[in-house]
Amino acid sequence: MNALFSFTSGLIFGIGLIVAGMANPAKVLGFLDLAGLWDTSLALVMGGAIAVGSIAFALAKNRTQSLLGLPLNLPTATKIDRRLIGGSVVFGIGWGLAGICPGPGLVLLGSGEYLGAVFVVAMLAGMCVFEIFERQPELSSITNSLD
């Protein structure tokens, strides 16, 4: 049941990305190009998503369980450190390079776009690099010193 709901959620999420224009990297870069001709559409995508999302999170606040009786896994981290900001900056540079973030990357893969598949493989490789560093005590001490 849970898998069915998350499958449907992924499906709606992907349709939303396509409708919004987020699955078109050229449009995303048009939004990120403040100095050129600025396509503000994607600010409205975030606005629309946050408007609906806020209601859901407000509803979830008073609950201890999901509607399927599962625990509500809300993030508990509140620390603002170099890891959070540094990671986000590295992500932003990658996003600005091609105009693709993780969700649209997977949608482009599903559209049969060859470069979408290349992006997803490279992204998984990047995530593996993170895993390798996190699992090796001597390596993670290097990145933990960033905190």
Binding site: S9, G10, A20, S41, V45, G48, A49, V52, A60, S66
Partner: peptide, 28 residues
């Protein structure tokens, strides 16, 4: 290239998907 309605509807769908995953599966 400004597509305000598609952007808002697409955004609302993304929000709906996030709402669904949160309220039914309890996940972000």
């Amino acid at each position: 290239h400004f597509t305000p309605f598609a952007a808002l509807i697409g955004g609302a769908l993304i929000g709906l998907a996030a709402a669904m995953l949160l309220l039914w599966s309890g996940r972000i």
